[in-house]
Simulated scan of single mutants.
Amino acid sequence: MKSRIVSALLGTALLSLAAAGPAPAVIILDSTWADQGGAVGAEGDGFGAARALAMEPQFCAIMSFFDGEQIGGSGTWIGNDQDGNAYVLTAAHNFGDGADPANWTYYTRAGTELTGKAVHIHPNYDASSDETPGYDLAIVELNGPVEDCDTPPLLYGGDDELGQLATMVGFGSRGIGSVGQDDKYYKSEDAAAARNIIDVVQDPAPDGKGGNQLLVDFDSEDGSSNVFENSDPLPVDEYEGVLGSGDSGGSLWIETDEGWAIVGVNDWGDDAVYGSTGGFGRISTQYDWVKSIFDARFTNQ
């Protein structure tokens, strides 16, 4: 596969991933928030469109992770095995060093509660290293099936992610581009979604210690916050945004000729305002790893 790492970035290479951590919120455009009823004193009322997007039927496989006090992670059901156990694609850092599936209670979008049986962490992921964020991937095996969706989603098997319009979905906190995350914006625990253009595609590094990422940036309405050279500085549409805290492990989707497919898993973000960036573990290059755990459905592209 031909390498397509985009080197023309503003600032330091790949935005100093060492300083990035789990992204801090579902952040949307100020203008969309205001159009949806957001205002001072009614901050949580401006996310109707983002919630409605997440509730579209193609995203029925999304799941939230609950730690007993709050939602702290997201994932996506990718199918059930012959024994009736569900498998969920998510981020490895949701499990810390112990990889204990009991860290969470797992809820489908429709509210079905499930418990964890096992966690499979990507072998290239190193929680103590800044060199493996693209492999921040895990698959959780649950004690029971997911039955809220008729068909498991596709995983993307092609190599044409660059420049694609993508939808990101998760259950995390909320905010707007001029302010960032704030609890006052978060008045519901249902899912929210945003859209963005995949501006950077990285192939896996030969040593497994770099690459394997899809990167997006959060463009402001006036185009002044563009991060990646040669990319459109304006929002892709009114749904422009990024994911964040509680969205770790959330899925990035594109529409293909075969249907909607997952192209990435939300791993990190460097800020929560206009000009922030987000990184997703790339799925298309991880066919063998996924198939070694569960026989998920991939596109043929």
Rank of each mutant, 00 (worst) to 15 (best):
L234P: 00
G163S: 08
G241N: 03
S178E: 03
D150K: 14
P235G: 01
A166S: 06
E221T: 06
L155K: 00
R195Y: 04
I198V: 10
K184N: 05
G241W: 04
D219I: 00
D207G: 01
Y156Q: 07
D232Q: 01
D148M: 08
G210C: 05
D150H: 10
Y135D: 08
G177F: 00
D217Y: 05
G134M: 05
H120M: 11
T167F: 01
N124V: 08
G163F: 04
D199Y: 04
E189I: 13
E240D: 02
A192K: 11
K209E: 12
V169F: 08
K187I: 13
E147Y: 02
G210W: 05
L165D: 12
D183T: 10
S225L: 02
V216Q: 15
V169K: 04
D217M: 04
A205Q: 09
A127P: 06
D232W: 00
F228A: 08
D232R: 00
S173Q: 14
E238Q: 10
G241H: 04
Y185K: 03
D222P: 02
N230M: 10
V216I: 14
D232Y: 00
Y125P: 05
S224R: 03
K184L: 01
E229W: 12
P123S: 09
I121Q: 11
P145K: 11
K209W: 07
D126T: 10
E189V: 13
V236Y: 01
Y186R: 13
L215W: 15
Y185W: 04
Y186D: 15
E141I: 09
R174V: 08
V216G: 09
D159M: 14
A191I: 03
S224A: 04
M168Q: 15
G157F: 11
S128G: 14
P145N: 10
V200I: 15
G210T: 05
G157I: 12
K184H: 04
V227N: 10
M168N: 10
L165G: 02
Q181A: 13
G180W: 02
G177Y: 00
E240H: 01
D130K: 12
D159V: 13
G223D: 00
K209T: 15
E131W: 09
G177K: 01
V216L: 13
G144I: 07
E229L: 15
S220I: 03
F228N: 11
G157V: 11
A194C: 13
N226G: 05
E131F: 11
S224W: 00
L234H: 08
D217E: 12
E131N: 13
Q164I: 07
G208K: 05
P123A: 07
D159F: 14
D217R: 04
D203W: 08
P206G: 08
P204K: 08
G210A: 14
A138Q: 07
R195A: 06
D130L: 09
T132W: 00
K184I: 05
R195K: 13
Q181Y: 12
Q213G: 13
